[in-house]
Computed example of a mutant assay.
Amino acid sequence: MEEEYLGVDIGGTTINLGVIQNNLIKKEDTILINKDASKEETLQSLYQLIHENLTTRVVGIGVGVPAVVDPVKGIVYDVQNIKGWKEVNLKLLLELEFNLPVFINNDANCFALGEFMYGKNKSSNSFIGLSLGTGLGMGIVINNTLYNGVLCGAGEIGMLSYKDGIVEHYTGSFFFTDYYNETAKSLAEKAEKGDEKALNVFNEYGKHLGEAIKSILYMYAPDKIILGGSISKAFPFFKESMFNILTGYAYQKQIENLIIDVSKTKGSALLGAASLCLQNK
Rank of each mutant, 00 (worst) to 15 (best):
K163P: 14
G139S: 06
F237L: 05
G267L: 03
T55Y: 08
T183L: 03
I213S: 04
A198C: 06
Y249K: 08
F237P: 10
L136R: 13
E182N: 12
D78R: 15
F235L: 02
A274C: 12
D223A: 02
V262A: 05
S268R: 02
N34W: 09
I142V: 14
G210A: 06
K26C: 08
L93N: 07
P66R: 10
K83D: 11
Y205H: 00
L271D: 10
D70P: 01
I140E: 03
K281R: 15
L151Y: 12
F111I: 03
G194W: 02
K207T: 08
V19M: 08
M117W: 13
E256L: 11
K83Y: 13
G135L: 00
I259E: 09
K264W: 07
Y251I: 13
G267V: 07
L160H: 11
F238Y: 12
V65L: 06
L24C: 11
A221K: 08
F176L: 03
G12F: 11
K27Y: 11
I260E: 05
K233D: 14
D178L: 13
P222G: 07
L151A: 12
A184D: 10
D107N: 13
N144R: 12
N244I: 10
S263Y: 10
D36R: 12
Y249E: 12
E189V: 06
I226L: 07
L24E: 15
Y77G: 00
G62I: 04
K35S: 07
K39C: 13
K73L: 12
V72C: 11
I140N: 11
L54E: 04
S186T: 10
N244G: 09
T145M: 14
N143T: 04
G84P: 10
G62L: 03
N143M: 02
Y47R: 14
S126N: 14
L146V: 05
Q252R: 15
E182W: 00
N148W: 12
I226G: 00
V88K: 07
M117A: 13
K214L: 10
G119D: 00
L32P: 04
N109G: 09
V79C: 15
W85T: 02
L24P: 08
G165R: 06
C152G: 03
N257S: 14
N16L: 07
G84T: 07
I140G: 02
L209N: 05
K193I: 05
G229Y: 09
A234M: 02
E40H: 01
T55C: 09
K185H: 11
I82D: 00
E211H: 12
K264P: 03
G139E: 00
G74T: 05
L54D: 02
L278H: 13
I245W: 08
T134D: 11
K91C: 01
E168D: 13
Y170I: 00
K266C: 02
G64N: 05
I216W: 09
G74K: 09
G62N: 08
K120N: 15
P101D: 06
Q252E: 15
G139L: 02
K185I: 05
A67I: 01
Y118R: 04
L136A: 11
N53L: 04
G60E: 01
S275F: 12
L199R: 00
D261E: 15
G267S: 06
I142F: 15
V63E: 03
P66S: 06
A67R: 06
I10V: 14
G7Q: 02
E168M: 09
M117G: 05
P101S: 01
V65H: 01
M219G: 04
G129A: 07
I61F: 10
I15Y: 09
E240V: 04
